[in-house]
């Protein structure tokens, strides 16, 4: 498994797009909490609060422990697409260059080839989750009024949830690339699906047809649901503030399903 990871890492570390996308992602990881901090401070400094909206930024304890993990990982989850694109480009390039074929001829089984990608997804997701943990601790210690151990760890489960989210999302991109095989088309279709098709279908299902379960079980929605959107709680709406067992269950079913579909295609189809 380590050897398979190293093979993929060798390919990526020598590819420009990997560093660009990863760098961009890294910039967001740092810039997002910092700019939110500045924004909230700015609001305080001009004395603005959204009293008429029923929200007060002083009641919006973005960086307070307990809330922090969900807030941070939810925002971070919006940028997962950048990591997804690394996989899309990596895999579809292999198909268009014919290098999958060459890797197999050179001595990887087709399942091993798939696992070079999956092991990298797991490794990268673990590293990113760890970075999120460190950033969370740092900004929490800097800006959270409460620093009690019990509050720090109360909802730290959002970090492993974020890890699962990253794995699932990248696996989804992997599957799409294995099915479609062309980098440009895969990226275009993923964009179209993630930002147009699924939000519309899911909103229609949930709000128009009241098929709440069905609307929530669509793949991208389900992959996002593991970290529920936290903001509504600041408007005093009822908000899920922990990782739901049902959401976790659905996500794990997706991970397994996506894996077996990808494996089926990667192993059963001829490499031509």
């Amino acid at each position: 498994m380590l050897r398979l990871f190293k093979i993929e890492y060798f390919k990526l570390k020598n590819s420009k797009y990997f560093w660009i996308l990863l760098g961009l992602f890294g910039v967001f990881l740092l810039a997002v909490p910092i700019s939110i901090k500045f924004f909230l401070d700015y609001l305080t400094s001009i004395g603005e609060d959204f009293a008429d909206l029923g929200i007060s930024h002083s009641d919006m304890p973005f960086f307070d422990f307990v809330d922090l993990w969900q807030n941070l990982t939810w925002i971070y989850s919006l940028f997962s697409i950048l990591l997804g694109f690394i996989m899309v480009i990596s895999i579809s390039n292999e198909y268009s260059y014919g290098t999958v074929k060459q890797n197999v001829i050179d001595g990887l089984s087709r399942k091993q080839f798939l696992w070079t990608k999956i092991s990298f997804i797991i490794g990268l997701s673990a590293a990113v989750s760890l970075v999120a943990l460190v950033i969370g601790l740092l900004i929490g210690f800097a800006w959270s009024p409460t620093k009690d151990f019990i509050f720090i760890v109360k909802h730290i489960e959002f970090i492993p949830a974020y890890f699962l989210h990253l794995v699932a999302f990248q696996l989804f991109c992997l599957m799409a690339s294995i099915v479609i095989k062309r980098p440009g088309i895969t990226i275009a279709l993923l964009f179209f699906y993630i930002f147009m098709v699924e939000p519309i279908v899911s909103t229609l299902l949930i709000y128009k047809y009241k098929l709440v379960f069905l609307g929530n079980v669509l793949p991208i929605k389900a992959i996002g649901n593991i970290i529920p959107m936290p903001w509504t709680k600041y408007a005093l709406k009822e908000t899920q503030t922990s990782v739901g067992i049902d959401d976790l269950g659905i996500l794990i079913v997706y991970i397994i399903l996506i894996y077996f579909i990808s494996e089926w295609i990667a192993v059963k189809k001829d490499l031509r």
């Binding site: 050897r3 190293k6 093979i7 060798f10 390919k11 020598n14 590819s15 420009k16 390039n93 260059y97 014919g98 290098t99 074929k101 060459q102 890797n103 001829i105 050179d106 001595g107 990887l108």
Partner: peptide
């Protein structure tokens, strides 16, 4: 050692890097 139909390598990698990768795969 095999060649099948046409050379399949990573276009942006040098010959050396391509062979390094083959070394990793072939151990």
């Amino acid at each position: 050692g095999s060649i099948l139909e046409k050379p399949n390598f990573y276009p942006t990698f040098s010959a050396y890097k391509n062979l390094q990768l083959a070394c990793l795969i072939k151990e």
